[in-house]
Design a protein around this nucleic acid. Sequence first.
DNA 1: CGCGGCTTTGATGTTCATCAAGTAAAGTGG
DNA 2: CCACTTTACTTGATGAACATCAAAGCCGCG
Lengths: 231, 231
Amino acid sequence: MPEVIQKTNCTNCLFKSLVFNKLNDSELDFLDQFKIEKIYQKGEIVVNEGDTINDFLYIKTGLVKLFKTGLDGKDHILSVAKPQDFIGFLSMFSNTNYQYSIATIENSTLCFINVPALKKLIENNGVFALDILDKMSLAVDGILDTRISLCSRNLRGRIALLLLYFSDEVYHKDEYILPLARKEIAGLIEMTTENVIRILSEFRHDGLIEMDGSEISLLNKKLIEAISTAG
Amino acid sequence: MPEVIQKTNCTNCLFKSLVFNKLNDSELDFLDQFKIEKIYQKGEIVVNEGDTINDFLYIKTGLVKLFKTGLDGKDHILSVAKPQDFIGFLSMFSNTNYQYSIATIENSTLCFINVPALKKLIENNGVFALDILDKMSLAVDGILDTRISLCSRNLRGRIALLLLYFSDEVYHKDEYILPLARKEIAGLIEMTTENVIRILSEFRHDGLIEMDGSEISLLNKKLIEAISTAG
DNA sequence: CGCGGCTTTGATGTTCATCAAGTAAAGTGG
DNA sequence: CCACTTTACTTGATGAACATCAAAGCCGCG
């Protein structure tokens, strides 16, 4: 269960500029009344598929996954989201219920902003409205790009893409701890757990990466990039 | 080359309610000044990847495809769009240039609405802004859903999905003329041209469909649906 | 008429999922 | 703390699904 914090205040928020830079102080004060911040441990469920959407979710710190459980019982991960990824916008405007579940894959701090309050701000502040449209549009472009390139890549290409994603987009380092289990990776890039393992081992044997459990370090990034684009 | 028509007027437009129902008459009159309607034949290019985005595109009638040409020279179709699909919103807010090309796959009438003019309306009319957000969100949900289900389906499932899409979403009939060549279908659902043909023939032999060139008629829709969900 | 593009079918090989089996790691209860 | 269960990880063998290659028929077009 998450620990709830309410004492933060949007006006001083370090992340204000990333989402709400088009709001003035009085609007931010208004927002404060409709906002709750929650701290989650790695591996906690934030929302379940089908839950009513009451809040717009914003990731302050950490990492979460959006996923659906298929008929076969396998999880399919739509997207991994980090701070500044506006995943909260996804179905917020088109649905009353979540079309997917959300769980943390690292310790995370999430901000819950009441939807009607946010909509009121959008309605009353056109510049803010345009800004939200911008950000939503960007988020969607990213997800679509990833998804489409996944479909047309072979398994090695997908693994390469994944390794580069965490290196370039999430951790900004060539060594990191994979926050996802092999099985979760399989669900994210649509392949079997066995093949995730097999290809990671292959990459290790070929000297592309070093690997110890979930510790990964990319040794030959150029070649990994080549595999990613070639696949 | 498209034939350009300017004499239409938004206030009387039959499609007004589908996009611009949150605008009043004076706002619609304003829009009229920044709008051009163009008529295209089947197979014409509307925009090329990389073109500057000057207008929001709205499909009044017809059918278009959004596609990217891959490094291998193969076209990958992101989406097929029909009237009321708000494809025009896709990168409009996040990019200055198109990330994909658009071509008509049937005779079509498109409405070009100047982007700065549209943004001004959004900025000044919060209710309209929220409405646009709704529609954009819905459009995105649809595309994402299709894309994700494509990835996790086998070839037979994908073909079944495609046949049902045109039957249920586009033509609302069990007999129709496929507007896409086999090669285009391949690019849309990420498989080879040969296998598109092979599986269509297979479906014919199994009595699921009748087929003469691009004329398709679905004979056993229940079974096609089963294949689509099972795949 | 002949060329090029689209379609179709068959043969072949590669890629990948599935099955099976074994090891390691991580809870769980007495 | 140790047996016990469960879950994650790993490797190999097999077969199914799919792409690729090759060849031939069809049709529109210059």
